[in-house]
């Protein structure tokens, strides 16, 4: 009788551990839609990065951010994902956002709000996995 219980407990432990590992391994990608996000204008965002990239990285890198500004241009990338460039006050860089599939693309020249994950600054400050959050 005692042995039966030992086997049962062992079995339950193995199953739970396997399930936990499986869930950790297969956890879903973060969804920017469920995150609050740092609200900032494209002008301010670029200014922050141009002033001090190191501290801007601390503030924005890998964070969900909600960027607003005038849409300079839109395009479709090599993998069919929509891209939106939001204009800043700088001549050198803007905010370059890659949207998720099937997100509505804002019109060039309009004011848009894009929410995405900031991956840092190349020529432009880059946002990925973004959604069109224009109300």
């Amino acid at each position: 009788m005692k042995r039966k219980w030992v086997f049962f407990i062992l079995f339950v432990t193995i199953v739970t551990t396997t399930l936990i590992i499986w869930f950790i391994w297969n956890k879903p990608h973060r969804n920017v839609q469920n995150e609050k996000g740092i609200v900032v204008s494209a002008i301010q965002l670029i200014q922050d990065f141009e002033n001090d990239e190191l501290s801007a990285n601390k503030k924005y890198l890998n964070k969900a951010i909600v960027v607003s500004g005038k849409v300079l241009e839109t395009s479709i990338n090599q993998d069919g994902l929509p891209t939106v460039t939001i204009q800043s006050a700088s001549l050198m860089s803007n905010v370059y956002c890659t949207l998720k599939k099937e997100q509505p693309i804002p019109d060039a020249g309009s004011i848009a709000v894009i929410k995405g994950i900031c991956t840092g600054k190349l020529t432009d400050v880059v946002l990925i996995d973004a959604i069109n959050d224009t109300k």
């Binding site: 391994w25 297969n26 991956t119």
Partner: peptide, 12 residues
């Protein structure tokens, strides 16, 4: 290239 911009199928 931004390192954080690499997308894997598996989030972990």
């Amino acid at each position: 290239v931004a390192i954080r911009g690499f997308r894997f199928e598996n989030a972990t």
